[in-house]
Design a protein around this nucleic acid. Sequence first.
DNA 1: TAGCAATATGACAACCTTGTCATAAGGAGA
DNA 2: TCTCCTTATGACAAGGTTGTCATATTGCTA
Lengths: 208, 208
Amino acid sequence: MPKETFFNLKEEKRLKILNAAIDQFALKPYEQVMISDIIKTSEIPRGSFYQYFTDKEDLYTHILKIINEEKRKFLNETLKNTEKINFIELSKILFKNGVDFALESPKFIHIFNHLLTHRNQIYEKVMAENIIIAKNIFIELIEKDKLNGLIKKDIDSSALAELIIQLTSTIAIDELDIENKETSYKKMLQKNDNILKIIGYGIIKGEN
Amino acid sequence: MPKETFFNLKEEKRLKILNAAIDQFALKPYEQVMISDIIKTSEIPRGSFYQYFTDKEDLYTHILKIINEEKRKFLNETLKNTEKINFIELSKILFKNGVDFALESPKFIHIFNHLLTHRNQIYEKVMAENIIIAKNIFIELIEKDKLNGLIKKDIDSSALAELIIQLTSTIAIDELDIENKETSYKKMLQKNDNILKIIGYGIIKGEN
DNA sequence: TAGCAATATGACAACCTTGTCATAAGGAGA
DNA sequence: TCTCCTTATGACAAGGTTGTCATATTGCTA
């Protein structure tokens, strides 16, 4: 948690520091980001940095918190009026929501992807919890769909939930291409559809 | 490539250095491994290290090469007499082969997993190529199975190939637990079965 | 045994980053 | 204007890593 001094700063200055940091963390993985770079870009003296934050991790986790909040807001907007939705439909919506968020906030997604591809102590602290929460939500939905006769009863709910989480997070990494927004967007949605079709109906012909 | 001096070393000494390095790279991701630690464990003077290797990357890529060779040997052993195999069967075999290799050479797998979870310049150089090769092999098999009426024609071969590659590499990361070999082994194979069942037959009830 | 080439050694310079601390500057109230 | 509390500054010590280099040692050959 940044120190009170940071929150007492005039908004302009506070945002300048925050944006400088976001730029850096979007550019490089956590370990490679140097406090020196951040204070250079945001034009604050070294001493001030330590007046605002305990250390790099303090600033970083604060930014991750902001990103999480933004993602949640964005998701809530998407999920309006989507009650009683089934698992496959929800997965589709979540895929699309993720892609939309990525295109709207590319820097945030870069930061997120760095965390996924350069796991560190912070990954464990921040992500592990998120993933468990997400998994439980999925499992609940899957079980409900089983009861409603939508999903085969002999499917392992836990494996399926993990599969979807795995895929939603890795697709973003591989296909995200901010340079070609439109192409990238279509590609990602197309890939999502292909994968969900596989998961929905399987690949083996003539059996069920 | 290590320098000739390294290969001229007596085997005992060469292996001592190699093992010290393998231990370190299995313990920590590339960036965190210090040359200082390796020379301490292998009891060679600092100067000698640079007599044998250009730098840390030189040693690291050499070790990755060794691992790749071992994996290939191991795989070839498994694939003896398995001609004319179909895609799903091959996937099962590859899953199991991966798990077996992991349990036989845990350090190698740790090194590999570090590379996957802490991607760096070397990841791109070493893995990117491997993945493309693997993907093409899979695609070829999938296409053949489509012709043979085993796999639905409307499945996107590329997406399916990526899906399998994705899963074979990530399962190892999440479930590998060297402490409880037997439990771990069963768990991983079980998970593989669950996932392949999903991919094979889909999760949606009553349709095909 | 002298001489040459390959090896071995480890002290050390060069580099870089972090976090601190003594000091200066601001600003609100008395 | 004086005072006190908050904030701003940036030089600097401390700590750690890398790659080099001059020097010593080995071992083989003539």
